[in-house]
Computed example of a mutant assay.
Amino acid sequence: MFPLFLLATAASAATTTDLAYVAANFENAGLGSVFPSFAPEAVLDASFGSSKVAIGQPVTQDTAGTRPELTVDAGDAFDASGNYSLLLVDANIVGWADSQNLHWLTNGVTLSGNGTSTPDYTAATDIRSYAGPGPAAGSGAHRYVLLMYRQPAQFTAPEGFSATIEDVIPFKVGDYATAAGLDLVAANYFTVENGVASVSVAQTTSVDPATLSVASSSASSSAAASSGAASSGSAAASGSQSQSASKSAASGSPSAPASTNTSGTGKTVPSLFALVAGAVLALF
């Protein structure tokens, strides 16, 4: 069975294209200004119940009301050892970068499994237990971002974040990560909208995986190239809005959710021939 084991392990690993696809979608959704140096080391998959959420997919407020099940598909350079912090932040509408709202923060998470891992919360500490999305009615599609940060060996929670937080609070994730010495290694996002937007919306579009060119470059440089090619239409929506416009948008100006379909994109799936060949080899 050894050859089949190798095939199964290869199938679970995130490819360079997978990682570039995540980075390109973040740029395309206007999240590049919130996470300007994000170079994914793994793919963070999320499921609400039996439904896996593709990156950028719109979900209902009720669907996202309970903490999602997460899996981590590791890239070649990913080290699953150590402790991690998991967060959910409301990054608001496209163009908003001033601050976020904190919906979930847990520290001391470990990963269990090889290739594809799952978070182990046994020794973790909830600072802000998971609170589902609650965008204001008519404010448009909010981007809810799931984040996985690697903690330093000598992790110390920043001031104000060592005890339980009961409310959803304004939060600057970049400042928090810098103060705690965290390294962003994986992320995902989905959108939630409450009712119909009352004003015009900034559109986002999904990234076409065919535009990604990663054969001879690293994931981060490929993501930068592909996001420039795939998201030129969204640059105006995410970068040309002034902060004053963004602030007014936060209370009533929406953005439309990205319509992204990532099912199976870039994943290494063994062919039927390979599986049969592996089984035959296992007999000898």
Rank of each mutant, 00 (worst) to 15 (best):
102 L>E: 03
137 A>G: 12
116 T>V: 12
102 L>W: 11
142 H>E: 14
167 D>Y: 05
139 S>H: 09
106 T>R: 05
110 T>G: 02
142 H>K: 13
144 Y>K: 08
104 W>E: 11
143 R>Y: 06
150 R>E: 10
115 G>T: 11
170 P>Q: 01
106 T>E: 10
134 G>A: 15
147 L>P: 01
150 R>M: 07
152 P>I: 02
110 T>C: 02
141 A>G: 13
174 G>E: 15
152 P>M: 04
157 A>G: 11
108 G>Q: 01
131 A>L: 10
97 A>W: 09
116 T>Y: 04
115 G>F: 10
100 Q>P: 03
134 G>W: 08
129 S>I: 10
98 D>L: 11
158 P>W: 04
148 M>E: 00
104 W>Y: 15
109 V>E: 08
156 T>L: 12
125 T>K: 11
112 S>K: 05
105 L>W: 08
129 S>Y: 09
177 A>W: 00
118 T>H: 11
110 T>H: 02
158 P>S: 08
99 S>A: 14
176 Y>H: 11
156 T>V: 14
171 F>H: 01
117 S>C: 12
155 F>M: 04
169 I>W: 13
111 L>Q: 09
157 A>Y: 06
177 A>T: 07
102 L>V: 04
101 N>I: 10
156 T>C: 02
177 A>V: 08
156 T>P: 03
134 G>H: 15
93 I>G: 10
121 Y>Q: 05
110 T>Y: 04
176 Y>V: 09
169 I>V: 15
112 S>I: 01
148 M>T: 00
93 I>M: 14
155 F>G: 00
93 I>V: 15
139 S>Q: 11
145 V>D: 06
148 M>C: 00
119 P>L: 09
124 A>T: 07
151 Q>I: 00
171 F>I: 02
115 G>V: 11
167 D>W: 08
136 A>N: 07
175 D>N: 10
139 S>P: 06
155 F>Q: 00
175 D>P: 00
145 V>G: 06
149 Y>T: 03
108 G>A: 02
119 P>H: 08
132 G>T: 09
155 F>Y: 15
115 G>S: 13
131 A>W: 13
108 G>F: 02
134 G>T: 15
170 P>C: 00
135 P>H: 07
143 R>T: 03
119 P>W: 08
144 Y>E: 05
152 P>Y: 01
170 P>T: 07
168 V>S: 03
162 S>K: 13
146 L>Y: 15
174 G>A: 15
132 G>L: 04
127 I>N: 07
177 A>C: 06
114 N>H: 12
146 L>G: 13
133 P>M: 07
101 N>M: 11
112 S>C: 00
98 D>C: 01
154 Q>P: 01
144 Y>G: 08
109 V>W: 02
159 E>T: 10
